[in-house]
Design a protein around this nucleic acid. Sequence first.
DNA 1: AACGCGTGGTG
DNA 2: TCACCAAGCGT
Length: 333
Amino acid sequence: MLQQTQVKTVVPYYHAFLSEFPDISVLSSTDLHVLLKTWEGLGYYARARNLHKAAKKVMTEYDGRIPDAYDAIITLPGVGGYVAAAVLSFAYGLPYAVVDGNVKRVISRVFAMDLPVNRPASHRIFQATADRLIDRQQPARFNQAIMELGALVCTPRNPQCKTCPLGEGCQAYLQGAAGRFPVRDRRKPVPVYEMAIGAICAKHRLLIVRRPVDGLLGGLWEFPGGTVNDGEPPDAACSRIILESTGLRLTGPSLLSHIRHAYSHFKVKAAVYTIEHGDGEIELSGPAEHAWVSADELQSYPLTGVARKILPLLPPLPEPGHGVKVYPVRSSN
DNA sequence: AACGCGTGGTG
DNA sequence: TCACCAAGCGT
């Protein structure tokens, strides 16, 4: 969970996760759908899929015990150099140095290193440096201390050099230039895609589709939609995309709202439409599954961030049996 | 090696 | 409003 994610963000997910999956055996026999629901909103969903695979592997190949050898633990899906060192030092007291964003920032400042920290070649230098610095008598303490220093004192912006325990031991501080470190290669500008998404309602139920288990947002559910072609009217795109992806031929998508969403490597501006649907046969192309769900049933599905943004915009969806037809009630504006 | 992969906080 | 960044890993 902590990969590329701040502790403050992780904490509530961590507690919910441990409550639901108290040990590796439970996790290994859990359906991915349930795991993803617990992970919903945390992002980087491959971590959840990898953790699931790792739990199965630990059960079948390591008798339910997480291995204490570097060469073994590193083979678990989702376990790289950082997690391997973290587990081996914190759980088993072994002298492996963690190198995360905090550690690289601290080291780059302490030694005034101008190696770009986001370059694979320089990562090896930081790892070698941390390996040299680590207290072999108290590896867990050292690892925790250097990460915590980076998180609380040697922060990315406005580092608290005045109260830093390293004080004059830091080259960047001596140069009065902590703010110039760490050096980082500029990242590429992110493209913005225009999308059209349809909230299709029939018999008081919404249509949601499941994304393929691999790739972006793998295994999560969302309202059917896709990218608008250049020059294509968004409402026409909505009809086209829904026909292509679900097989449903629909008329008159009604504009509900626009939403924006930022992913790791691109941005989206989406037009959201409501559509009333009589009947018709689903024939999926792209999505792995589909479901017609009531508002209540929807709660158990792991949804994408975009779907969770759309949900509160929708007109109320009554439970069937009330005989009150209120969806859709809003016209476009 | 470079890129794909989420989301929320922050200045 | 927006770019930047976070307890990285897989391909």
